[in-house]
């Protein structure tokens, strides 16, 4: 139950980031108040972009913010639940939109397993995502997989919340050139 809530929150995060981005971008900074401390002096203003700058279409940030770059798994499972499938369907549509983009699926695990078993489990998760994307019409040549096992947690914590965030497969846009 708790885990579901957490995951629900997580899946909302990209949207939240998105809306805050556009808000900051839209609302221009009207002035700096007594910032310069020079009364009657020239007050200049400049538009601020999003915290990370403009989103390049077809980039990792685009995928992360507008599509969702990751799916989550239950403990010791590589099964794709409904939320995961929806994310992957969006990813597939996005990949069709940017046919030049190739990606690597990184499979990850929480720390509650042996290192070697988790390497295998991470690979199984990455492969599950790849298979789903391929079935949705993405060429397998565009998708590499790698497993990091438990070596690269997204959340360094040691509780169920952290573990749920760490049991994931992340779609990463390959940087070419």
């Amino acid at each position: 139950m708790i885990r579901r809530t957490v995951l629900a929150l997580i899946s909302l995060m990209p949207l939240a980031a998105c809306s805050s981005n556009s808000e900051t971008a839209a609302g221009s900074t009207a002035g700096t108040g007594g910032g310069s401390g020079v009364p009657g002096g020239g007050v200049t203003s400049a538009e601020l972009g999003g915290p990370r700058g403009p989103i390049v279409p077809g980039s990792q940030q685009d995928l992360e913010v507008n599509v969702g770059d990751r799916v989550f798994f239950a403990f010791d499972s590589a099964a794709l639940d409904d939320a995961a499938r929806q994310t992957l369907e969006r990813q597939a549509a996005w990949l069709k939109q940017y046919p030049a983009v190739s990606v690597t699926i990184e499979g990850h695990c929480d720390e509650r397993g042996t290192r070697e078993y988790n390497l295998a489990l991470g690979e199984r998760r990455a492969q599950a995502v790849k298979n789903y994307l391929v079935a949705l019409g993405i060429s397998p040549d565009r998708i590499r997989t790698i497993s990091y096992g438990e070596e690269r947690p997204a959340d360094p914590g040691h509780d169920e919340t952290a573990w749920a965030l760490n049991r994931r497969a992340v779609t990463v846009v390959n940087v070419t050139g």
């Binding site: 499938r85 079935a135 949705l136």
Partner: peptide, 14 residues
């Protein structure tokens, strides 16, 4: 069709 195939892929996993 692809969605059906994808669903099958997921089903195989399960």
């Amino acid at each position: 069709d692809a969605q059906r195939t994808a669903a099958l892929a997921a089903r195989v996993l399960e």
